[in-house]
Each structure stands twice: as structure tokens, then as C-alpha cells.
Deep mutational scan, measured.
Amino acid sequence: NLRWTSEAKTKLKNIPFFARSQAKARIEQLARQAEQDIVTPELVEQARLEFG
């Protein structure tokens, strides 16, 4: 299971509600691909840039 830093959680809250669950799934996918067990603000930002 993935842990989220408080900064990453804050960044996730800045994503519009309607896109948040999809973004969260993508962020967690990116973390797993990078073999990380902690979601960082950088991963959230990477996903945000993908979504535009």
C-alpha cells in the first residue's frame, strides 16, 4: 500500500474534484512504476502535467 506525504495530499486537493479520483489512480500508478512506496509532490505534479 502506498503512503502519501502531507505535501502530496495537499497538491491532490488542488486538483478539481471531478478529476481527482482519476488523477489519484494515475499518481499511484506512476509511483508503482517508479517502484516507490511513498507518493511525493513531484509525482502529483507529474500527473497534473499529463492531465493538462
Rank of each mutant, 00 (worst) to 15 (best):
L43M: 12
A25N: 10
R20W: 04
E42P: 03
Q36A: 11
P41C: 08
D37W: 13
E42R: 05
E7W: 03
R26F: 13
T40Q: 03
A8S: 04
W4Y: 02
E7K: 09
A34T: 11
T10G: 09
N14W: 07
I27R: 00
K9C: 15
F18L: 08
W4P: 00
E35G: 15
T5Q: 04
E50I: 11
S6A: 14
L12Y: 06
L43K: 02
F18P: 15
L43W: 04
S6R: 13
A47R: 02
A8L: 01
F51E: 04
T5A: 05
L43D: 02
P41S: 10
R3M: 11
E28S: 02
V39C: 01
A19Q: 14
Q29R: 08
V39P: 00
T40I: 03
S6T: 12
K24W: 04
T10S: 13
L49W: 08
K11G: 07
R3V: 13
Q22E: 10
L2M: 10
L30P: 00
K24G: 02
L12K: 01
R26L: 11
L43V: 04
A8T: 01
I38L: 11
T10N: 12
V39K: 00
Q29C: 07
Q29H: 08
A23R: 03
Q36N: 06
I27G: 02
Q33C: 10
K11H: 11
F51M: 13
V39W: 00
Q33T: 07
K9P: 00
W4L: 00
I27P: 00
Q46T: 07
A23K: 02
E50G: 06
Q46W: 07
P16Y: 05
S21H: 11
L2P: 06
V39A: 01
V39H: 00
D37I: 11
A31S: 03
E50K: 07
T5G: 03
V44T: 01
I38K: 04
F51D: 04
A23W: 10
I27N: 00
K13H: 13
L43S: 02
T10M: 14
R26Y: 14
L30A: 04
N1C: 11
Q22R: 14
E7M: 06
A47I: 14
L30S: 02
Q29S: 08
T10D: 15
A47H: 07
R26G: 02
A25M: 10
E45W: 05
L2Y: 03
R26N: 04
E45N: 06
Q36I: 14
A47C: 08
R26Q: 06
F18M: 07
R48T: 13
A8C: 03
A25S: 09
E45I: 06
P41N: 05
F17G: 15
S6I: 10
E35R: 14
A8K: 00
I15S: 02
K13D: 13
P41E: 12
P16S: 04
F18Y: 14
K9D: 07
F18E: 11
R3E: 09
R32T: 05
T5H: 04
A25G: 05
R26I: 11
P16K: 04
I15L: 08
E28A: 04
A47V: 15
E28M: 03
R26T: 05
A8D: 01
K11T: 07
E50T: 08
L49A: 10
L30G: 01
E28G: 02
Q36P: 01
N1V: 09
E50M: 11
A34I: 11
Q33D: 13
N14D: 15
R26V: 08
K24F: 07
K9G: 03
L12S: 01
A31Y: 01
S21F: 07
R48V: 14
R26C: 12
N14C: 15
I27A: 15
A47F: 15
V39I: 12
